[in-house]
Structures are given as C-alpha cells and as structure tokens.
Design a protein around this nucleic acid. Sequence first.
DNA 1: GTGAAAGCGCTAACAT
DNA 2: ATGTTAGCGCTTTCAC
Lengths: 347, 347
Amino acid sequence: MAARAARGGHHGVSIEDVAAAAGVSTATVSRAVRGLPRVSEQTRRRILDVASELGYVASSAASGLATGRTRTIGVLAPYVDRWFFYKALEGVERELHEQGYNLSLFSLDSRSGERQRTFSKTMVAKHIDALLVLCMALSMDEIQELRRLDIPLVAVGGPVEGCSSIGINDVEAAALATRHLLDLGHRDIGVLHGQDDDEDLNFQVPELRVNGFHEELARAGVEYHPEWEVRGNFTLASGAEAFEELWNRPGPKPTALMCASDEMAMGVILQAQRRGLRVPEDLSVIGIDDHEFSPVMGLSTVAQDPVAQARLGTRMLLDELAGKAGSVHDVHADFELKSRTSTAPLS
Amino acid sequence: MAARAARGGHHGVSIEDVAAAAGVSTATVSRAVRGLPRVSEQTRRRILDVASELGYVASSAASGLATGRTRTIGVLAPYVDRWFFYKALEGVERELHEQGYNLSLFSLDSRSGERQRTFSKTMVAKHIDALLVLCMALSMDEIQELRRLDIPLVAVGGPVEGCSSIGINDVEAAALATRHLLDLGHRDIGVLHGQDDDEDLNFQVPELRVNGFHEELARAGVEYHPEWEVRGNFTLASGAEAFEELWNRPGPKPTALMCASDEMAMGVILQAQRRGLRVPEDLSVIGIDDHEFSPVMGLSTVAQDPVAQARLGTRMLLDELAGKAGSVHDVHADFELKSRTSTAPLS
DNA sequence: GTGAAAGCGCTAACAT
DNA sequence: ATGTTAGCGCTTTCAC
C-alpha cells in the first residue's frame, strides 16, 4: 500500500522497490523472478513473496531494452474476419500464451487507406521477435522488407517466396475433392475458383486448387468444360453469385461442383436450393476447408485444420527464438476427405 | 550499407547512428522523426532522409521505457473465432493502425489450461496503454485486477461492472425482434436462449435478450410458454440441437422462434429444413446480429455493427490517452430490424 | 550466492 | 533551433 509512494513514479512497482523491500540487490531480484539459478531457495522465496505482495511485474519495455527481446510475436494477415484467418489467429494465440508470449496483430488490406502497408516500418519493426504471415499476397518489395527485418519468419496457409511455409498441399487437396466426385460417377463437373479481384489474398492458393482439379480430371480422362468454370472470392455471397452466374449460362449444366472453399460451397448450396434444385439429388457439391458450419450443412469437404497449422508455425518460431536454429521449415499439413450429404452418386 | 557496421550492434540502426550521419544530436533526431516542433525544416528533411536511408526505426522498447507509453492497446476476448469477436477485432485493428498504434491480443477462455487468466500479471500489465474488453465474463476479482492496472478501460459488446461499455441495448433489440414476430400475427412464439454452459462469455447479454423477449410478449398480452424456451450457446450447432430438442418435446409447437443470435437462428433453419419443415411457411425464425451469412440465408434479424462499436470504443480509448479525460463513456449502439425471408405472416 | 555498475536506445528537461 | 545530460527499469558481466 504505502510502498508505491516511496519512489516518485505514481504508477508501477519497480525492481528496486522489490529489492529494497527484500533487502537484496536488483540483480538478485531479477534472477529470482525469472527462475534463474544462482539464487538460494530461501532468498528466492522471500523475494517472490515480497514481489507478489507488492504486485510487482517487470516492465516489458525495460527488459526488452536490456535484452533486445520483446517476447512478442507478430501476425500479419489481410483479414481477420474470414474463416482461415480467425481460426489460425486463435491457434497462434493459444500457443503463444501458453509460452508466455504476446501476440501483436497486423491486419493490412488494400481497404486500409492508401495501401500504405508500411509494416516493416513503424509497425512490425523493433516490436516483435518473430513474424507469422497468414496467406498474405506480398509483393516482392514487401517480402524484401520483411526479410530485412532479420527475424524468424514463417508463412501459414499459403507459400511466400523465400520463406518457409506450412499449409496443406492445395493441389492434392483439390484433386482429392475432385476424385471424390469422380468416384461417385460424376463426369460433368464444374469448378468454382477461389480468386476474383482480391489483391490481398495469397494468389497462389486459388490457382493451385484449380490446378488440382484440372489434373485430376485429366488423370481420369474426363473432359474439362471451361463453361462450367466460374469465379468467386472465397465468401458465401460470392458462392451464391457464382452459382447464379453458372446456371444462367446457356447450355447443359454440370451434375457436380467442386468449390475452392466451404464458404463458397455453402453459398452455392443455398442459392441452388433457392432456385429449386435439390442437393445432392440434382447437384453434388463439395468444398475445401471444413468450416464449422459444414457439419450442420451436411457439406462434403476436404478438411484442413488452421488452428493446428498455426500452432505448428508458432512453435517453430518459438523454437527458433529459443536458439534451435533450423526449426522453421516447410511442412505440408494434413487434410482429409469428409464425405457428408451434399455429395451423392450420380443417379 | 556500410553504416550499420559502425556500431557494435549487429542488428538495428540506433538514433545515434542517425544523429552521427546527419551531424546533429540525438535530441534533434528524436524531435525530427516524431514531427515535433523546434526543428528547422531544413534539418528535419536532412534527418528524415538519412533516417530512411539507414532504415532507422525507433526502438519501441526504448521509447516505451523513456515515455512510459507503449503505443499498444490490448484487446481481451474469450474467443476470436466467433462472429462478434472477429468482427470487433477487425474494427479495433483498423482504428488502431490508422492512428499508428499496435494491437495486442489476449484471448483467454477456460479452455486455456488451468484457467490461469493471469492477464493483469505478466501479460497485460506494463505492456499496454489501454484495454478494450470484448464480452468477457469477468469475475469480481478479475475486474478488480483490471481496474488496478490504472489504464483506460472500455467494454464492447457487453457491460462490465464498473467500466464504461459500448453495445446495443440487448433488451430493446430482443424486444424489437419479438415485436416483428408479433406484428406478423404470431402468438405462439418460442425463444432460443443464448447461454448454456459458457462461463467465458458475458453472462448478461443472453439474459438481457431473453428479458426483452419476455417483456415484449407481456406488453402484447401474449401468453408465454416455458415449454417453448430452449438453450443454446450462440453457435450454429447449438441452434440445430436446440431445434431438435424443442421439436422432440411433446405437445403443440410454436409458429415462430426468436433466437438470441443469427448463428443459432441459422442452425434452427437448417435443422428445421432437414426435418421437412418449411421456413417461413411452417415456422418463422428471427435472429439478432446480422451475420455475413444472413443475407444469403434470407434470415430476418435485428442487425448490429460490431466493427463500428469496436472502432468507437477504440477511439474513446485513444482520446483518453491523448489527454481528453472523460472520453470513455457508455454508449448504446444502433440496431435495426432487417426483415428478410425467414419470417412471414402467420397463415 | 550475491552485489556493483555499466549499459540497452530513447526522451525530456534544461541549457545555449 | 539545437545540444547536453540525466534518467526510464531492467539485465548482465564481473567481482566478491
């Protein structure tokens, strides 16, 4: 109570206060509170007691200045209000706080003013010990800037040039989804792309998924219909619109649709039903992701786990910081077919 | 290029490097880079040039230590992977980065180990200049701890004892949803609660929404049926389960259902359709929130805007930090009925 | 096992 | 308008 009046600062108990109250030097307090050796158990306990009594918490600014470490890692993402991103964010957060690290969020999209993604500037720089990049579409310049930061870097959910990344093999995942449709006997299969005009998202992912689709079709010797190819931007609304566009085109319709994301697949299903089509009787639909709504929607999908991917990426960063050089490396995350009720054999 | 070799530090250009290169003192550099007065335009420009050439960025630890300010504000939330939360987070982030502030995320739920929500400890403390609390259920002890931090505090999306908060009037919002159903002629109305066993979420919100429902019913002189009251936890899955539970109960069924959140409302609709019910012909359903899926689902709802609420809360915090005492205060955010196709007149 | 003291890089009086 | 200097609170040799 009275202790804090001792020093001038109106705010915050310093290490000196603790040292004084415990009758030791600040060096010893420092060792004690950080659990370092070279402190007798007896003094350590006394110091810890005094510290907690005084409500002492080390100033991160001060220790950051002294050590050069902030115990904060940054997350760079184009959005946070989209499935993969908020899931991954949750994963990073959990892993980090289990290790006593802080998470600093940088969400930069082209919406945010003059596209002044000055992240390596005032923002990211000197603030964080490592950086995790979530499916950002980065220009070469931006990547250069990031690398110049000279801190551990890892990408999650989409490759970044010259930087280890963890994520599923998008080509294979899309191929698996496509194969599922083929296995059910479908031959007239359309595809809903994931990319539209989104300049923030990692551009490779959508492309890779469509490649997987094409490859699998080719492998099966099934004809590819460009007129059944349509574009969306990963959102539910875009899925609904894409369906509309596809169905408004003249000519025959596909019996199955492979969508580059669950959100779009759900948009397709909803819009199809509104148009009086039955899923899966009239149209089979499969997605990629396994959104939390998918089980209830009965959406068949190729599931991936962003939380696990993000945790893994975070752990690599932390290991690297702990001195285990080479901890950060490329990893292909698991994915798995989940067959539900939005897909059925061709009747 | 060669400049960084000048000093011992292998990492990072310091203010001294810039000062030396520009032929001025560190004090002048400090003023110049922060846009403070008392620097001639000429020297300022020279310093800025040198600084950018050297890639100088001030160490936040050092300036934090010197000023006592971190230019970081914290966000405390039970989840980040749920609608209100990721939307609000997006809002905070945008507002913050426009002002050159950083966002530090603390997501604490009872899942995270031994419920050691030690936020006021190592985590939050000394790390942030202000804190925004997102619909957290806080114990009295925890609230005490937070207040002891002695930094500006604001709650968004649910009242926190002894702390200004911004959010919609949940009672009125629920009443509005209920009134919509009444106006359509419905008299047999069920309600889907928002709370189940969630100890992390702010407990008041679910309760308030149900209160609004009850009050509106009473006001209209319509009988309340406890057997049409069922509980969920704000998720889609819980909505589906709740519908199932409700419909499995013996006795007559309601013709309309007021749900405490859109996610649950969507779960209800999906499950109802699976059971062969038509929405809205056989059952009208209304939610609260206006989830991004709701327009496509045709879900009628009482819309609120978490992004705007979060931005406002953030701005208040920033204003308070800027010295405008009293900037943080209670605000009731807007909400609005959006009538779509999940509700229809009683036939 | 413990203490003294020199920084870490910046800011804020206070000179000039 | 610019420079000097004394910290901010912690960590970390290096003595003892």
